[in-house]
Design a protein around this nucleic acid. Sequence first.
DNA 1: TTGCGGATTATGTATAGACGTAATAAATGT
DNA 2: ACATTTATTACGTCTATACATAATCCGCAA
Lengths: 254, 254
Amino acid sequence: MTTPLGRERKHLQRALTATDASLHTRILSDIKRHILSGHWPPGHRIPFEHELATVYECSRMTVNKALSELARAGLIERRRKAGSFVCRPRSQAAVLEISDLKTEVEDLGRVYRFTRLALRRHTATEADRRRLGLSKAVPILAVTCLHLGSETPYCFEDRVINLAAVPAADDEAFLWIAPGPWLIAHVPWTEAEHRITATTPDLASAQHLAIMPSTPCLVVDRLTWRERQPVTHVRFTYPGSARELIARFEPSSG
Amino acid sequence: MTTPLGRERKHLQRALTATDASLHTRILSDIKRHILSGHWPPGHRIPFEHELATVYECSRMTVNKALSELARAGLIERRRKAGSFVCRPRSQAAVLEISDLKTEVEDLGRVYRFTRLALRRHTATEADRRRLGLSKAVPILAVTCLHLGSETPYCFEDRVINLAAVPAADDEAFLWIAPGPWLIAHVPWTEAEHRITATTPDLASAQHLAIMPSTPCLVVDRLTWRERQPVTHVRFTYPGSARELIARFEPSSG
DNA sequence: TTGCGGATTATGTATAGACGTAATAAATGT
DNA sequence: ACATTTATTACGTCTATACATAATCCGCAA
């Protein structure tokens, strides 16, 4: 029977579940398993909150916590009165982990080193403004760097920094710390947009990377904002052979 | 004063908050704003749950819901007894939205069409097994397609499907529906790994795309599993000029 | 000074109940 | 037959409380 016994029942549940973490975690992974295995196909209505609460002998709030997380993860869709339904998989999405270059190079088992090439402070030219999506001629800092793996050119970095957004960058020479890590440490939180293309390198890149101008290169453009204010634009040019961007996608973070 | 007035106080709160959604949503976005603006820098301890509960005149559970979400989003870190702290930004990560090719082409304002080229059913060769990460010689389906934008070659698709994982694919000719959309509709949920590289195209790709073999191409390799079982491997080859992968990153989904 | 043990405290999990909200289904009137 | 109202239902939010858990703080002793 389902007489409400409160705390007493909770302890019973604990004893039975044992090994696993919390109850709502267990409910969550149970449902996730049903969905991932295909046992509950897209469109299938999963049991109501009160039904699951009865099955797991817990309160509706506990079930709600599990279902809410599944909804935020995009595995289920919840509709009032109707119930909760398994979503159809999203258009393929992938989380592209773009760690910093040091980690990247060292993951390949090579020794990381970078050299700062040019560093120039000036007011934004038309080209700079276009790169940053700015209309005003703010002061900017232009930096170029070469990143090496075991003394072999690995990546050419061409960056402009909006000094109006990051005044502190003006006091930095970027000889001991690369612009990327420095910015991460000094600009609290950012939004970013990445553009990934395959092209032949421009002359400067080809020269610094010591490759033929016809070598296909992977070019990653990153524009970073903070509170809608453009902070920095950077172009990374990798010789196509040197680099693979790897992205993983799983339905949920669990 | 902070006399507990329960429901009465809740209605007062509603009146004050008005415009916005739910209380825990408002608490969440308030805190997020503090972090994104840099007002609360990384490492900063945000107010305790009970403090926020007092400020917002609500119960601790409501604050808990907001803080839990922020923790799951990676904006804050929570430590028992110590409190909740603003995280330092993750190594740059980006959500790469790889929608289906139809949408992709139509977003460029062109008319989508695809043609199926070859379709062959056979047991997995050594090369196929390597592509899928299989050790056994299962039956597979090999398909090649050409995707066009306004009758211009846009992308060459070279795919193998593990028929042991998706037997139903054997009855499909892929003349009216492309393999990608068909699989999404028939394989419920999947994990995937993407590899993105820049290279010169192989002969078949260059020929079908009607480009010079020296043209830099963006190559996207996608390996898809379901419950750890390899489902399909596909290689998309885009002429570098035709394609940009765009990825956006924000600290949280909100 | 250093190491250990207990008190303190913030978060983590769960509950039972309440009311709001939106969408469906049923009953009703035209 | 169709439109409109009403009732039902399941999710959404919030409360007040309880106890678990783990880390820190503090005092005491070696």
